[in-house]
Design a protein around this nucleic acid. Structure first.
Lengths: 89, 89
DNA sequence: ACACATTGCGCAATAG
DNA sequence: TCTATTGCGCAATGTG
C-alpha cells in the first residue's frame, strides 16, 4: 500500500475516526454496566428490607395465633376474656 | 530517542509487556463486572420469590384473623361484641 | 469490491 | 528509574 497516496490517507483518516467512535461506545457500555451493578445493588437492598419487614409481620401474627391457641387449651372457659391479663414476668 | 539503541528496544519491549498485562487485567475486570450483574440479577429473583411467598403467607394469616373476628362478631354477643354489630351489609 | 466496526498491537506520554 | 495506564494510529479482520 502506498502510504503517500490520497486514497490511503483518506482510508486511514476514516478508520481512525471509526476506531475512536468504537472505543467510545465500548467505554460507554462499560460505564453502563457499572451503573447497572449499582442499580441492582440498591434494588437488592430494598428487597432485603422488605423481606425483613414481612418476616417480622409474619412473626407477630404467628405469635398471636400461638397465644390464642394456648389460651384455648389452657383456660378459656368462655369467650375472649384472657387477653394476656395474668402475666407475671 | 535513538530507536536503534539497545536501551530503547529494551524499554519498548518492557513497556509492551506492561501494556499487554494492563489490558488483560482491564478485560478481566470488565468480565467480572458482567458476572456481578448476573449474580445480582439472580439474587434479585430469589428475593422477589421470597417476598411473593411471604406476602402470600401473610395474606393467609390475615384472612384467618378476619374470619375469626367475623365468627366472634356473629356468635358471641357478649362484652366485646360491640365492635360494630349493627352493620347489616 | 466498498464502507464502517471491532480488535490486537506497538508507540509515546504520563501517572504512580 | 521502573511499571501501570491511557490515548492514539496502523493493519487485519469482521460485518453488512
Amino acid at each position: 500500500m502506498d502510504r503517500g497516496s490520497e486514497e490511503y490517507r483518506l482510508r486511514r483518516e476514516r478508520n481512525n475516526m471509526a476506531v475512536k467512535k468504537s472505543r467510545l461506545k465500548s467505554k460507554q457500555k462499560a460505564q453502563d454496566t457499572l451503573q447497572r451493578v449499582n442499580q441492582l445493588k440498591e434494588e437488592n437492598e430494598r428487597l432485603e428490607a422488605k423481606i425483613k419487614l414481612l418476616t417480622k409481620e409474619l412473626s407477630v401474627l404467628k405469635d398471636l395465633f400461638l397465644e390464642h391457641a394456648h389460651n384455648l387449651a389452657e383456660s378459656v372457659p368462655q369467650e375472649t376474656s384472657a387477653a394476656g391479663q395474668e402475666k407475671s414476668t
